[in-house]
Amino acid sequence: MFSRQFDKAVKVGGAVAGATGAAIFLIVYFSMWNDNADVGYRPQQPVPFSHKMHVGTLQISCQYCHAGVESSAHSPIPSTQTCMNCHTLVKAESPKLKVVRESFESGQPIEWVRIHKLPDYAHFNHSRHIRAQIDCKSCHGPIEEMGVVSQFKPLSMGWCIDCHRKPESGIIGARPISGVFTGRMHNVKNLKDSAYIFTSIEAQIGKSTPMISPSYGQMISPLPAHVVAGIPHPKSAGIGPETCSTCHY
């Protein structure tokens, strides 16, 4: 019906349009994933604070500044007073710390840019995870190597659930640097001498039984068949972490 040339143009044009459409769809589809949209968010902060210097080189524990993370839902951003504990003496005249000094004098908090942001309808409790001796690195990545902090994990619901179903894939047991365990950083040998009963995550996992994948209407994890002395296993809470109201309340 059509000329041979027109037919060919339609075929080639259709193929090209289809391929372009598929490419655009794929790019948009994957860009919506938190792995691509959120991970790597690295905003400029008002103060050029380097975690690499403070945690990596000076080996100050996470909890020195983020004190209260083990007792509150949020990991507190340190007050300006915390900075000034040292910086009244150290680099007291540094131009990089101008904002900190101004904040300290005026009492107006520094407006740090939030990196890790959950939707407002999802609640995450830091203290619960710290008490389970889950290291900060499990979710925040190697902070001690980051000059400027960026988001390291997607913080999506699927990511939470993945880890709760298969903790051994995601959890990094408490490291000395975080202060989650003993706060001691240098002599790792002494960790085992400490009076805390320490069970490595591998040992905990070894004792746990794999959870059957839940079917509809069975969203509550089975009560633990195992008992891990001293340290709660992520799966062994009284009500399972897969109850909707655990995070959405």
């Binding site: 100050i60 524990s61 020195y64 004190a67 202060g179 003993t182 706060g183 001691r184 400490s194």
Partner: peptide, 11 residues
């Protein structure tokens, strides 16, 4: 005490 000492005093 060791934990808190190492976190807050040891720096």
């Amino acid at each position: 005490g060791q934990n808190r000492f190492n976190v807050f005093c040891s720096p």
